[in-house]
Design a protein around this nucleic acid. Sequence first.
DNA 1: CATCGCCATTGACACGTTTCAATGCCGCCT
DNA 2: AGGCGGCATTGAAACGTGTCAATGGCGATG
Lengths: 348, 348
Amino acid sequence: MEPSERADRPVGINDVAARAGVSAGTVSNVLNRPERVSEATRRRVERAIEELDYVRNSSGRNLRSGRSDSIGLVVLDVTNPFFTEVAQGVEDVAAEDGLAVVLLNSAERGDRQRRSARLLAEQRAAGAVVMPVDGDTADLLWLRKQGVSGVLLDRGDVGPEVACSVSVDNLAGGAAAARHLIGLGHERITFLSGPEGLEQCRTRLQGLREGLAEVGLDPEAAVRVVHTAQLNAESGEKAVEEVLAGGPGRRPTAVFCANDQLALGVLKGLGERGLSAPSDLSVVGYDDVATASLVHPGLTTVAQPKYELGCAAMRLLLGELNDPDHTHERVRYTPELVVRGSTAVNRR
Amino acid sequence: MEPSERADRPVGINDVAARAGVSAGTVSNVLNRPERVSEATRRRVERAIEELDYVRNSSGRNLRSGRSDSIGLVVLDVTNPFFTEVAQGVEDVAAEDGLAVVLLNSAERGDRQRRSARLLAEQRAAGAVVMPVDGDTADLLWLRKQGVSGVLLDRGDVGPEVACSVSVDNLAGGAAAARHLIGLGHERITFLSGPEGLEQCRTRLQGLREGLAEVGLDPEAAVRVVHTAQLNAESGEKAVEEVLAGGPGRRPTAVFCANDQLALGVLKGLGERGLSAPSDLSVVGYDDVATASLVHPGLTTVAQPKYELGCAAMRLLLGELNDPDHTHERVRYTPELVVRGSTAVNRR
DNA sequence: CATCGCCATTGACACGTTTCAATGCCGCCT
DNA sequence: AGGCGGCATTGAAACGTGTCAATGGCGATG
């Protein structure tokens, strides 16, 4: 057996150069600007690369260029299908330009978001797509100050003078839910919200109220708000009791949840009490995650274009990276109501 | 306003050194071995770091050390909650040791798995946790040859002489499902499998057969296999027709699905035909994803310790990274059946 | 035949960090 | 007082790559 590996020292560009009988610079050219090197030597170099199993060292490369060729995607909860679908969109578009995507999970925690931002800055990431915790854009701005272009996605808000952003019109989403429920004759609606202070929830609630006001209903009287600790199914399930109990007025005939996860929890909670949607309570969710169409009855929900959201964000980022004098853009989608079985006309 | 940023050249360790009136080496020491530097200078350096907003460049650091401090996690489908829960486990354990996790999505495609492996090799990742596409461990082995320690997770198989691995006993899982269904009086069972050739599916099926044989039933007569194109809900929904049609014998009274996603699709498909589990068909899934407990009826399923799987894999990897003379281990979990409403005694 | 220009290739340097042997300083012991 | 040990700090080298001005060879042109 021949000594195929002369030493355990990793093989570098110089080893390849030696083997092919050329200089290191030429090898680098073969890798990065193949057109500048003659056919013959290019083949010799390529063979050497293959024979030595050379893989280039991106530390060296990035050090030299001052920039890495991967972008970061900071997501609020890898476990939530909404975010992973967004991630798909980002990945697919990034792949078109040969950029690698590093998926980072802030788990809705400010400290982890900060850690992620630091990591990306240390790696001199080419860019970042950030869905900020609690709409806290400080880390995004810090990243930009460090020279890492960042795009804001889905939450939070910054002026178009500082960064690109992609969002969905939560006001319109809330209003769409309102119109749907009104059309079915519901006039006492509970809004099941997440933790207090989430801008996202507040806006959807406001949309709901405005939708009610549109047809002359008094939002204050018609809607009651219940807060939960987290935007997940468990919280939704626990909240059922409080939702059903009703407010100072009567028991509600419909509930509009800030989130599909919450809504799914509510559906489960109803089942456990021998009740069900829509006969005992009409239920509307928000997001249209895959599960929404799998449960029975299907969940009526305000659908967000998740995949497109990711694509759009990545496109904006690419635009900023490639175009030297780029001007920030704001892309805003309008959500669409998807009607399934969890809502029906009010019979009370 | 003072010129807070003298130039747009990024600030490096030398700028910090100059500002603090020390050498670059000392700054490096403050960062990496603070105990070697005197209290006074340490504070001076820390102040300079803060004032200049210095963040260290990991390219330089990694170049010097020959190794990066992040590990890669190659996952089959970011969209599937099973994998994201595993990812959580990996992340949490990695965080204990200050390692960053780069989540890469192979999307069940061999070429993307290869690309991911290449990326990790180029970055000289500290290690990798790989869930191989089709059990194809070639890329894992290649990574190891490149000096990147890799742990095998959930699928595929390599001897303990080449790498650590973590898996769940699919044979036992299949048998558990079998015993449950037999106990309920089912004797004609359809196994709803994924694409042909998936080792994972084959083993679960074999477990099912062995479970039946245990009580003297003829596996060949009792179980029929239906293949789907993908392991997702859509495929499951489409397969309902074929499942219900039954084989050369009678129509089945129960279906055991290779995957919760498939099972959820089946439940939906039944509903669309005015049928339901468990009265028309008992349904058993595999994985116990969150949705399994949210649908109505709840999905009886073979639960895998997803989070623990991720933790275990990362622990093994850490062990290999820290212990110079490390010997590979094989960790194997036993799944547990979770009984919910989608299965009942056979009344036919 | 001499000169010019073109093209492929080279060689050296820069990127930002870590490491390690060498330096200088101070206090302690004899 | 002189010498020695310990400790904080320094300076230079090294990591692997990309870039760019300089080099050398070759063919074409006058």
